[in-house]
Design a protein around this nucleic acid. Sequence first.
DNA 1: CAGCCTGATGCAACCGGGTTGCATTAGCGC
DNA 2: GCGCTAATGCAACCCGGTTGCATCAGGCTG
Lengths: 168, 168
Amino acid sequence: MTTAPERRPLPFAGVEEILAALRAAGHRVSAPASQVLAALFDADGPASAEHIAAQPPGLDLTSVYRNLERLEALGVVSHVHAGHGPGLYALARGSDREYLTCDRCGRVTTLEPEALDDVRDILHGRFGHHARFSHFPIHGVCSDCAHGDAGRAHAHPHGHEHPHAGAA
Amino acid sequence: MTTAPERRPLPFAGVEEILAALRAAGHRVSAPASQVLAALFDADGPASAEHIAAQPPGLDLTSVYRNLERLEALGVVSHVHAGHGPGLYALARGSDREYLTCDRCGRVTTLEPEALDDVRDILHGRFGHHARFSHFPIHGVCSDCAHGDAGRAHAHPHGHEHPHAGAA
DNA sequence: CAGCCTGATGCAACCGGGTTGCATTAGCGC
DNA sequence: GCGCTAATGCAACCCGGTTGCATCAGGCTG
């Protein structure tokens, strides 16, 4: 799951529907698989594999990564690289989400893709570049951090953000 | 040098000027230091530490990283994270460069910062987000890869780009 | 409902990018 | 030329993530 995910996200309603899709794709539904899904449904924003593995009974990290990989191949999950930390995984309901991340507090803001259509148009017109902000987000400083505390913000004063979940 | 570089890039003319600045800052000018600088002047685009270390006599990677760190602290060098691979380092002449990178061929395109002023304005107006594309670039697919080969391109067919130097 | 095939698990080892500790080397100001 | 101290270069380590492999168990099949 290290390369850019280009498969279409699937629309789906609940865990059961996804488990059915897994079985339909020839996969088995094991306890870790459902726990990973449950964690993704619980999270309110992209979450790291480590965060997902830490859900109650305690999952093996390798298994979490392999489940995320399967789910991503199915179009049910996508991941984003928000800075230096671990990749963050989220359910890929409907169309591709795009992200803004704050380099100071680590906040990840999820956007509907249309919200950046004009930006994409500018980049395409000017450079012929087809920009995507879904796998590698737009970095910068969020409004809170910009004026709020004149610099470093609430969450992670070191600039070494450890984002496990952010805003939806 | 793992965090966002926010110091102002210095304008400078040549290696000698930088060496003088190093000495003025209380640093010593050793052979590895000059070799790193020479490699940066030779490269035509951002280069990885490994690439820099591979210059003829062969430098120790640790030393290369430490020199890059010093140079970055001086405002002479900046680095950009272009995807999953290693960080890429370049001379930071004048103002902050910004970057577009192609996820297919690994090409890194360097832009003058004014080239994205309108994009920054949109993002600031719409989300209050102060975007920077100098440390984490805009990802996507370059025009060559987009139509050219209808997909994967010239350089690194695996999508596992190994960018050591790109376009200036 | 038991059996079997095969996919999934969980552990350990490994990998790439980068950092840290530390003894040794060497800049450079005096 | 001396000596102080920064810089080097090696080894060990860290973190995020992947791979190998023996074991376990999901779920189709009879």
